[in-house]
């Protein structure tokens, strides 16, 4: 029992990290730019595919391909925001709703584009370290899980330092907390939100690669990943970077614990039930705005 618990907790924690890094961009986009990017996980799956092809066509490990993918996805996000989202939001009575419909359409385009290009066959990432494991006491840690967790730590850590230490980052935080005050202080709202959005999409790429280390994927997988993202964002609070991190870990832990004490079939119900209760007790999520 103790061994099972330790093993499940460890696994859950590491997986939670992957969920966190997948979700942090979505949370940022929603909180700072007020855009519900329903296509967020479609970008993540796209990154997963690119990493997969880098490995299978050119022998480049997806982690090494990330430095190239990050700026690319950042620019993609910036372009998307400048060309599509800003124009829509400006004219909309309710920017959040209009951009949701927009990103929904975008998600469909990306998914089916991938379908056309790469067929619906499921993919599994097989890196050099896929089967590697570490023994920590009685618990076995899988290398891909550890690496996904490492990616999460680095990315979320970098994001957090960015918002705390750099001027642009502080501007982003200001816009998150008090848009009007930020505007009055001379911060260029347009520029800041666009950059924040670009960063959100870039982290989706990291999230996609992290998830691909753990799970199989095909063009339609982005919808099931989106459910995880919603769960993390509810718990962590919309717009909070640390909140997403914490929420991801907690959700991973909950899944780990419940699989030991509760029949597996009720796992999801336990998770949902706990989240509902948590949300009702603390409506803003874990970390307040």
């Amino acid at each position: 029992m103790l061994y099972e618990l330790a093993q499940s907790l460890t696994g859950g924690l590491l997986i939670g990290g992957a969920l966190a890094v997948l979700s942090v961009g979505f949370s940022m986009a929603w909180g700072i730019t007020h855009v519900l990017n329903v296509a967020h996980c479609a970008f993540a799956v796209l990154a997963a595919y690119l990493g997969y092809w880098a490995l299978n066509r050119w022998g480049i490990d997806p982690l090494l391909a990330l430095p190239i993918m990050l700026p690319t996805f950042f620019l993609l996000g910036v372009a998307m925001h400048t060309l599509l989202i800003r124009a829509t939001a400006r004219r909309a009575h309710d920017p959040g709703l209009a951009t949701m419909v927009l990103t929904f359409g975008l998600g469909i385009v990306i998914e089916n584009g991938m379908l056309l290009a790469w067929t619906p066959d499921p993919r599994v990432l097989k890196t050099a370290y896929s089967a590697l494991t570490l023994q920590v006491g009685p618990v076995i840690v899988q290398a891909p899980h550890l690496i996904a967790f490492g990616l999460a730590v680095i990315t979320i850590g970098a994001l957090y330092l960015f918002t705390e230490r750099t001027f642009m980052g502080k501007a982003v935080r200001a816009v998150w907390q008090q848009p009007m005050g930020a505007a009055l202080s001379g911060i260029d709202l347009d520029r800041v939100t666009t950059i924040a959005y670009g960063m959100a999409v870039a982290t989706a790429a990291v999230g996609g690669v992290a998830m691909s280390l753990l799970y199989t994927f095909d063009p339609a997988t982005h919808l099931s990943w989106l459910v995880y993202v919603f769960l993390v964002v509810i718990l962590g609070g919309v717009g909070s970077i640390l909140g997403s991190a914490l929420a991801g870990l907690i959700i991973g832990l909950i899944i780990g614990i419940s699989s030991v004490f509760v029949p597996l079939a009720w796992n999801n119900l336990v998770l949902f039930g706990l989240l509902i209760v948590l949300l009702l007790l603390r409506p803003q999520g874990l970390l307040q705005r």
């Binding site: 599509l84 124009a87 419909v101 927009l102 359409g105 469909i108 385009v109 089916n112």
Partner: peptide
């Protein structure tokens, strides 16, 4: 797949002009 892509593009197009 093309049908779905066209649908997505239409959705984007309409919402951009009539948010």
């Amino acid at each position: 797949q093309t049908a779905r892509i066209v649908f997505g593009v239409l959705l984007i197009g309409v919402i951009m002009f009539l948010p």
